[in-house]
Structure formats: structure tokens, C-alpha cells
Simulated scan of single mutants.
Amino acid sequence: MMVEAPLFQRIILGLRPGAIDRDAVEVVAELAWLLGAVLQGIFVEDRAVSGIGALLEAREFQLIGRQWRPIEAERLAEDMQLAELSARRLLDRAAQRLGVASFFEVLHDEPMSSLPSLARPGDILAVVAPRDPHERLAPYYLEPALVPGFSATTIFVPRRIGRKRGPVLALVGTPQDKGLSVAAAVARAAEERLVILGPNDSGLREGILHAAKMVGGHWAKTEFVALERLDELAFLSAAEGVQERLIVLTRPPDNAHGDMDPFVIASMRQSPIILVGPTAAADALSRPPNAGDQTSRAAVSTREQSKWADP
């Protein structure tokens, strides 16, 4: 099933030539369906690549024949058009299979770091890890979801997805954490167990479980694991053996992640991460679930809709 009332309007997925991954697109489409959001694909033409053909001295090494040859601007343009068509088809197929509303847009001569400027309140920015981890260290690479001042909700998708089914794992500090409402809503929509890693405090534990139940309703299957510290080491240690399909974290108000690098955690756990912004889902905890849940019961189940729900 999907959420009864959408928590987000759009999921914006940036697509780059040569870095389009089918599994990642399908994971993001699945999350859009579960959250009741529109999937907005943004194909970003790399102006650095498109400008190479204009350089007279630009050359490429041809494996067949083992020789260098000039880079032709016309062929580069054709390759860019083919990459755009491939991205459009991939997005359309993933969205159509799930019944998700989707749109496709092309940004000409814009860097990937421009994507945050497109996010509006109620949007999620989805970022796929580069195929080469060392690319994040390159001078030209700027992680669009971690730029200073950016506070919108973000999905980090690792290159390798470890599981198609499993619990939703959330790191929660207080009952007011925005990530708690999102995690509970996704667990309810996916009919999965919600595993909460939270502080070793009985008062906070009861408050967190009550808040989760307010969102999850009668679908709630919640487990609470107490942590002495809410840091990366304690999180990874407690997560051993959970076999989650999704991790939900709350973005700190000052956007300072400390040692909690979402891409590193996503890669280590082989699970996508939703990093929930401070203004996301503001009314979710105050919106009680429909006890009858007639809309959700009438919806086609995740198992019937999506290959990611196959056991």
C-alpha cells in the first residue's frame, strides 16, 4: 500500500550521462510510490563534457586500432542525446510499473550541484552514489545534498542494494524527530517492521513509541533498541543483523553531520538512506491514521506492484 496522505510532493532524481543505474532508479521509484510522491527525473547535461568537442586539441584513445583520434563535437552531441533517451525510458518504465506519476526534464549546461536550487518545500532530493568512490574526492565533484545551507530531505542511494524486503531502520533521538514520522509512515505503507534505535531513557522510549504508533496505527510492528550513544559506531553496531531495506535519519538543524556520512553508511549497509530535513512532514505526527484504512486496503499491495517487494 502507499501512505494515506502524502508526506512529500516530489522526489527529484538527478541523472547524469554515464552514471545512470537501473536499480537505483527503481529504488527511488519504489520510495516515491510508498510516500505518495511524484517522481521528477532531471537529466543534467555535463557542460564540461559537452564543451570538449569545441577544443581543437581534444583527443580520445580508440581501443579498436589502438590509436588516438580527434573528438568530434557531432558525435558527442549524439551520445548525449542517446544518454538522455536512455534515462527517460528508464524513468518512465520504473514509474509506469508502479503507477507513479513522473516527469522528465533536461538541464542544459548545468552542474549536478545546481539540483538543490530546484527543491521546494515538500520535495526530496535523491542522490545516487558515483560508480567510482574516489570521484567524491575529485575537485570538480560537489555533493549537491551536503552543500552548506541545504536542509531539504534527501535520499542517498548506494551503488549496491543489499535487500529488496526487510524492516525500516530509524535512528531517533526524541519523539519530535521528523525522521520518526517518515520511518513509521514508510514501514506502515510497506507493511514492514519498524526498528527504532534510540536513547537509553525510559521516558523518551515511551514517547518515541507512542509517536510511532500515532503514524503507524494498527499496522505498527515496532521494536525499540536502546543505545548509550547516538553516534555512527553505536548505530552500526546495533544495526548488525537487522537486514533492513531502508534507513531513516533526521538531518541536524545546523546541517552538521559529524562522523555520520550518509553515503558511507548507505554503502556499508547496502541500504538507501532518507535524511529527513527539519521542515519535512511537519504535521505527520499530528495526523492520526484512519482506523478503517479503507483507502489503503483498496490499493494494490506492494507485493503485487513492485519487484522490490518480491521475497
Rank of each mutant, 00 (worst) to 15 (best):
A5S: 02
Q9G: 02
I12D: 05
L15Y: 04
E30D: 12
W33P: 00
L39G: 10
Q40M: 06
I42M: 05
R47W: 12
A48N: 03
L55F: 02
P70S: 04
A73D: 12
R75P: 09
R75W: 14
L76G: 11
E78H: 15
Q81E: 15
Q81M: 13
L82R: 13
L82F: 14
A87G: 02
R89C: 04
R93E: 10
A94V: 12
V100A: 08
S102L: 02
F103S: 12
E105D: 07
S114F: 12
P116V: 14
R120G: 02
R120D: 05
R120A: 01
P121E: 11
P121F: 07
I124S: 11
L137P: 11
A138I: 02
Y141P: 09
L142A: 10
V147C: 00
G149I: 06
T154L: 01
F156Q: 02
V157L: 05
V157T: 07
P158M: 11
R160G: 06
R160A: 13
K164P: 09
K164Q: 14
A170G: 07
A170V: 02
V172C: 01
P175R: 00
P175F: 13
Q176S: 12
G179P: 01
V182Q: 00
A183E: 06
A185K: 01
V186C: 07
R188C: 04
A189W: 13
A190V: 06
L197K: 03
G198Q: 02
G198Y: 08
D201N: 15
L204K: 11
E206W: 12
L209C: 10
A211T: 14
A211S: 15
A212D: 01
K213G: 08
G216C: 13
G217Q: 03
W219N: 08
F224I: 06
F224P: 03
L227G: 08
L230T: 01
L230E: 02
L230Q: 10
E232Q: 15
E232R: 15
L233F: 14
F235P: 03
Q243N: 11
R245P: 00
L246H: 05
V248Y: 00
N255R: 15
H257V: 04
M260K: 00
F263E: 03
F263S: 08
I265H: 05
R269P: 04
G277E: 12
A281L: 09
S286A: 06
S286E: 12
R287Q: 10
P289F: 13
Q294F: 14
T302G: 12
